[in-house]
Structures are given as structure tokens and as C-alpha cells.
Write a protein that binds this DNA or RNA. Structure first.
Lengths: 193, 193
DNA sequence: TCAGTATATGCTGGGTCAATATACATTTGT
DNA sequence: ACAAATGTATATTGACCCAGCATATACTGA
């Protein structure tokens, strides 16, 4: 999903600065289903300005850098909704945790357990955040649909982890513990995580 | 997750060509949890060759381009497992479908329904594929854990969609149908989907 | 004084996607 | 039955996009 589209989507809910758009994707209603970074939001907004799909007015603030508040134009709305008509890509899920876990039989047992535990608290936090960002205002049907989809999926994940953590630790304790990794081995370079 | 790491992970299961590695992420056991494209696999393999974490031998084939079969070296294994020790990023889920759906009250009703239906068959296919790629050989505990995690999550998603499709269509039919989009509006440029 | 919040920008490395090339295998059209 | 089109297996590359980080400023609270 293109950064420009995502920005337009955010602006459909009202005017916002680049910073605020980021927050919408970080904590807001979009957070469970997509993400964009500053590095693409700001260039996207500039391009949208050129295309006249957004307007911008600078709000002077004392001390802090000027806040540039963007609003979507009627043309922008039309283009956005028109763009949504194209067939979307299927959902994609990326899980470094599971990737690592799938090599768990080559890793020290303790590490695997720790990883699962980190994984669990990770999901707990995520779910709390989703619940937390629930509007007090009544959401339109579609928004509720999306919101609850997220909750259902994330809670299943958490449930699964909690339920099967025991299985995993038990089965691992039956297997041979792989040697603790030797220190000062040639490590994978910093960029490689 | 770095392309080099992903390639090493694939090669942990045995030697493979770039093409075959891609297939592992497209259909294979990794498919529910991560992805890499050709455009990053091939450069990654070349770099891994430099670093001597993989070796390559060219398998001549009649007619077709040579197949370069890569194998992981002991150094590569060590580096890979060592790299896994770093704390992984939290899971990320990307759903263009849900993003679009969340603007459903601005879209023609028929489009929304069609979208949900496409979404459903999408998940059906995905789940079938996951089940399909189940090895007949007995998986180690960790691999089963990951495999079943994927199934649990994907099936919850599908269930949710099936169960709430009706709610959605019902509620939408009560609301005003937004005007059918006017043809030849300025469309969002090709790159924008 | 140190950390956190609010705000914007630019760079770099790495990533996706689509085009390109080759050659066999299979299906479809007439 | 033969030609044409599509599909599979394989590798490469270039254009554009994006995430992540560093950087800059200045307030607020600990």
C-alpha cells in the first residue's frame, strides 16, 4: 500500500500534520493493520501537495518547529476513493519471532523459552493498545468490523501462545539441548537482524 | 528480517537454488510468516558467497539456464544461529483489504460486499496452501508449533469474516449508498495501489 | 540535568516489482 | 496436425520506494 494512499486515508478522518499521521498508524485505529514511517510520510505529503490532492497551512507555534497541517481536497477524496477500487493485495503477516522459533531445535533451550515469553508479553501489549484506541464515539459498521477483526486475530495469537507454551517447553526438555553458542564466533553483521 | 538471514534459514533445510528458495517462501513452510522477492534473494546469495557462508556449484542443465545450487557452510550455520540471538521485531500484519474496508461507508455497497467475498476466498486459498505444505515427515516440536500457530490465526480470520459478513451487509443496507463513482475522474496513478 | 514529547527533514542501505532472457513443456486454436 | 500461446524453471538487473536512523529545535516534567 502506497504511502500517498495511506496519508490520504488518514486525512479522510480530518486534517493532520505529518507527525500526527504517523501517530495514527503507530497507535491509532490503523495500527493493527498497516504502518508507514516518517521517511515516507513526509515525501508523500509533498507529492500530494504537487498533485493538489491535499492543501497545507502552516501553524506557527512558539518555539517548536512550525506545524504543517494538511487537509484533503475534494479532488483528493475522489482520487483516493477511486484508487481503493483496485483489487488489493492479500494480507501479509511478518513474524521474525516465528521464523526464529522455527529453528528452536538449534538454539539453547533457555533462549527459546525466553523468546516465547517475550512474544507473549508483546502480544499482550499490542492487544491492550488496540482496546485502548477504541473511540468512545460510535463507530460506523465498517470500522467496527475492522476493529473487531484485529482483536479476534490478535487474541487468537495470544491464546495460542499461552496454551502451547507448556507443550513446547515440555517437548524441548525431552530433546538434547544444543551446545551453548560459542562466544566470539563470527557474528552476523549489525545490519543483519 | 534481512534477506541474507532468510536465505541462510532456507538453506538450513538443505541446498537450494535461488529459484527454489523463493518457492520456499512463496508456498513452503515459511510462507505464512515471511516473504522475500527474487530481487533481494539473488544479491543476498552473492554477498553470502563473498562472506563464505554459502558455497555454490553450478548444475548444468540441458537448455535451461544453469542452476546454481547453494549450500550453507559450517561458518554460515554458526553465523546464522548467532544472528538469531538478537531480539526480534514484533509481528507485523499488513492488510490492504481491511484498510479499504474501513472506508466502506464511502464506497458503493456492492463493491464492499464483493471485497469481503474476495477476502474470504483469499483466506480459504491461503489456509488450503498451508495445510497442503504440511510435510508428511514428522516435524520437530518447534516447527509444529509454528505451523499450528499459522493455522490458528488464519482460521480465526476466516471464521471472523464468514461470521460477520452478514452483519456488515445488513448494516450497510440500512445506510445510504454513496453515489456510484463517476467515471473518468482523476484516478490515482498506477503506482498508487 | 536528563529524559520525554512534539515537530520536520535528509540520507543510506536495502527492498519490491516488473522487465528481460532462455528453453523446454503443455495447452489451445484453427 | 501444426502453429501459436501460455506456463514452468531459472537468473539478472534497474527503477523506484520505503524503513530506519541521525539530526535539529525547544518545551515540559522528573
Amino acid at each position: 500500500m502506497d504511502a500517498r494512499t495511506l496519508c490520504l486515508g488518514a486525512l479522510m478522518h480530518g486534517e493532520a500534520s505529518g507527525y500526527e499521521i504517523r501517530k495514527l498508524f503507530e497507535d491509532g485505529p490503523f495500527s493493527p493493520i498497516c504502518d508507514v514511517s516518517y521517511g515516507s510520510i513526509y515525501p508523500a505529503l509533498t507529492r500530494l501537495l504537487d498533485e493538489e490532492w491535499v492543501t497545507c497551512c502552516v501553524a506557527k507555534q512558539d518555539g517548536r518547529p512550525d506545524k504543517k497541517v494538511y487537509s484533503i481536497t475534494p479532488g483528493g477524496r475522489a482520487a483516493f476513493l477511486n484508487g481503493l477500487a483496485s483489487t488489493p493485495a492479500p494480507d501479509k503477516m511478518q513474524s521474525e519471532m516465528l521464523f526464529i522459533l522455527s529453528f528452536g531445535d538449534h538454539l539453547p533451550r533457555a533462549d527459546v523459552i525466553k523468546l516465547v515469553d517475550r512474544y507473549i508479553s508483546n502480544y499482550e501489549a499490542r492487544i491492550a493498545a488496540i482496546h485502548n484506541c477504541a473511540d468512545d464515539t460510535v463507530l460506523p459498521a465498517v470500522r467496527r468490523f475492522v476493529h473487531n477483526f484485529g482483536i479476534a486475530v490478535y487474541e487468537t495469537a495470544l491464546d495460542y501462545l499461552r496454551t502451547h507454551r507448556a507443550d513446547l517447553t515440555e517437548e524441548l526438555s525431552l530433546a538434547r539441548d544444543p551446545a551453548t553458542p560459542i562466544k566470539n564466533r563470527p557474528a552476523v553483521s549489525a545490519g543483519m537482524q
